[in-house]
Every structure is written in structure tokens, then in C-alpha cells.
């Protein structure tokens, strides 16, 4: 098992994901530079948080054209596990692997704080370590995490069980309190909270461990 962690210019949680996976959970990782076109030997892909290409124009809007993402698209289509955290979630929506968009927080401020989330794992392969309706605590750290989609799309997502993570107290104005969604097949998960920041008891909680440890199941 080797997890590929994408690195764009401006990514800044790439090493944190590596620490959580490799340092805390013992899952080997390798960094994938944004210009590479191959994912040989990779069993899962994590698109980490940060400010890819400075998040200029719009979060994730430039990153979606990165060569590596063509390979990620094919990997996801073949059922490979893909996780987009924070900026990675923004990238997944920009490239159309997940529906909707993430816009400026309702309060206009960047927010870095712990958030309570309700998990509805459904068929999402990343969340099988949590019970249905379980409440977990993960940190959020974003300025543009307000999930938006039209009401019909939201209904469809809910009907399909794709709204897998919801805020207990909505911090950013997301529709339907959405904190994370999966694709219909359940192999692609995008979420604004940072599970990699909740794997190490020294720096905070450990509620993110079951999510990343799902790769070991």
C-alpha cells in the first residue's frame, strides 16, 4: 500500500498528510509533483490542503489543469480511492469529480477552529471506520469552505447518501450544513475539515484516524 500525496506549488498540508499517514499510522506515502503524468504503483491519492498556485483566480481553478490530475481522473474512474482535503476538495469540485462549488465563508473571515461533524458513512469507502450518525471533532482551517450547489443537486446528493459529513454548528454558511461529500461510487471523498490534523494525540484529537486508517482495511 502506497499513498500518493499530490504537491502543487502552494500546497502546504502535503507534509502534514504524510506525517499523519506515515508517522502516525504507518502507511507509506510518496509525493506526486503536479507536472507528473503517471501514478504507477499508487494505491490511493490524497489531494492535500493549501493554496495551490496561490489560489489565484479562484480556489482550485488553476490546479484543475495540472497534468497530474488527468491521471487522477483516470485513477478515480477505475475505482481508485481519492481524498481531497480542504483545497483538495476545492480542486475536486473544480475538476468536476464532485458536484458543487466552495465559496467565501459567510462571515468573510478565514476560520481555524475545531468543528463537530455528524458522519453518515453510507457507501463511502473512506468513512467505514465510523458508525452511522457518529459525532466526531475535526479542525477546520479555510476562508472559502462554504459549500454551494442548487437545491435539486443537494436533494439528489442527499437522496443518494452522498452528503457524508455535516457540521453540527454550521461555521461557514454551507448549504445543508455540508462539510464533505462523496461521489456515487463512494471512492472519492472531498471534505473541508482536516482529518490529518486529528491523528496525533500530541497536537489534538485522534478523530481523523479512522478516516485515514480506512486505507489499511
Amino acid at each position: 500500500m502506497t499513498v500518493g500525496v499530490l504537491v502543487f506549488p502552494g500546497s502546504n498540508c502535503d507534509r502534514d498528510v504524510r506525517w499523519a499517514l506515515e508517522g502516525c499510522l504507518g502507511v507509506p506515502t510518496t509525493f506526486l509533483w503536479h507536472e507528473q503524468r503517471q501514478l504507477d504503483g499508487i494505491d490511493a491519492v490524497v489531494i492535500p490542503g493549501g493554496f495551490s498556485y496561490g489560489d489565484y483566480l479562484r480556489c482550485g481553478a488553476i490546479a484543475r489543469f495540472a497534468p497530474v490530475l488527468e491521471a487522477v481522473r483516470a485513477f478515480a474512474a477505475a475505482g481508485g480511492p481519492v481524498l481531497g482535503i480542504c483545497n483538495g476538495f476545492q480542486v475536486l469540485t473544480e475538476m468536476g469529480l464532485l458536484p458543487g462549488a466552495l465559496t467565501r465563508n459567510a462571515g468573510l473571515h478565514f476560520i481555524c477552529e475545531p468543528a463537530e461533524l455528524r458522519v453518515s458513512p453510507g457507501g463511502c469507502r473512506w468513512l467505514q471506520g465510523y458508525g452511522a450518525g457518529e459525532t466526531i471533532r475535526l479542525p477546520i482551517a479555510h476562508g472559502e469552505g462554504r459549500y454551494q450547489c442548487d437545491p435539486e443537486d443537494l436533494r439528489r446528493l442527499e437522496d443518494n447518501g452522498q452528503v457524508v459529513l455535516r457540521y453540527a454548528a454550521n461555521p461557514n454558511g454551507s448549504v445543508g450544513d455540508v462539510a464533505g461529500i462523496s461521489n456515487p461510487a463512494g471512492n472519492v471523498l472531498g471534505l473541508m475539515p482536516h482529518p490529518e490534523r486529528a491523528c496525533d494525540p500530541v497536537t489534538g484529537g485522534v478523530d481523523g484516524r479512522p478516516l485515514l486508517a480506512s486505507l489499511l482495511r
Partner: peptide, 14 residues
């Protein structure tokens, strides 16, 4: 003030 700052990135904030 400080909730606007990312105080956790780098995964070492104790």
C-alpha cells in the same frame, strides 16, 4: 483574532 490564523499547519502545534 486568532481563529483567523491557521495555527495548526505543519502538524506540530502542541
Amino acid at each position: 483574532v486568532y481563529r483567523q490564523y491557521d495555527h495548526q499547519v505543519q502538524a506540530n502545534t502542541v
